[in-house]
């Protein structure tokens, strides 16, 4: 029964391939549905946002991390815990702005693009834009407004994938009138 052999280790990998392939099918479908790449990027970001606002609960429940005291700590948690937990990679954190409100996540390999090649007519498609939405959505749920965008992408010929994150402001809780 060679079919049964070595399935335990395989299945973890298969699970990540399921996600990668599903994401690929989604992007393909969106490219068919929308005429220009900008609209696809926007749609991916929006879907990512919706995933992010839910993902954060799952993350907090599983990871047991507490409150972050500054943006540097947030960066660490994102790179070392969140990315590791969900995508199995640990991006490095670099290029801090002097004010400490902006940094880059460098992804040496991006699991989302494992089987992907961009055709020539989609030069402005940001394939992994879902990630930006996820990060933005998740952080918004912990009172942080951030701006997230891709500045380098291996799909476009860059040597690494770089996501730039900028802290905008703390979102204050507005308690409804009459509540304490």
């Amino acid at each position: 029964m060679s079919r049964q052999a070595g399935r335990g280790t395989e299945s973890k990998k298969m699970n990540s391939e399921l996600f990668t392939l599903t994401y690929g099918a989604l992007v393909t479908q969106l490219c068919k549905d929308y005429e220009n790449d900008e609209d696809v990027n926007k749609q991916l970001d929006k879907m990512g946002y919706n995933i992010g606002v839910r993902l954060i609960e799952d993350f907090l429940a599983r990871s047991n991390v507490g409150r972050c005291h500054d943006f540097r700590e947030t960066a660490d948690v994102i790179a070392k815990i969140a990315f590791k937990m969900y995508l199995g990679i640990t991006p490095s954190i670099t290029n801090w702005s002097p004010a400490g409100d902006e940094f880059s996540l460098i992804l040496e390999n991006n699991p989302l693009v494992d089987f992907v090649e961009l055709p020539d007519n989609h030069s402005s498609l940001i394939y992994s834009n879902l990630l930006c939405g996820v990060l933005r959505g998740a952080l918004e749920m912990v009172q942080m407004a951030v701006d997230v965008k891709f500045v380098q992408d291996t799909l476009k010929g860059d040597s690494v994938t770089e996501i730039r994150m900028k802290f905008i402001r703390r979102i204050e809780d507005n308690l409804p009138a009459g509540e304490e």
Binding site: M47, L55, L87, P111
Partner: peptide
């Protein structure tokens, strides 16, 4: 690795 929660969320959002 790519946690299955991610697939479930992606599917729902799709």
């Amino acid at each position: 690795m790519a946690d299955e929660a991610l697939f479930l969320l992606l599917h729902n959002e799709m």
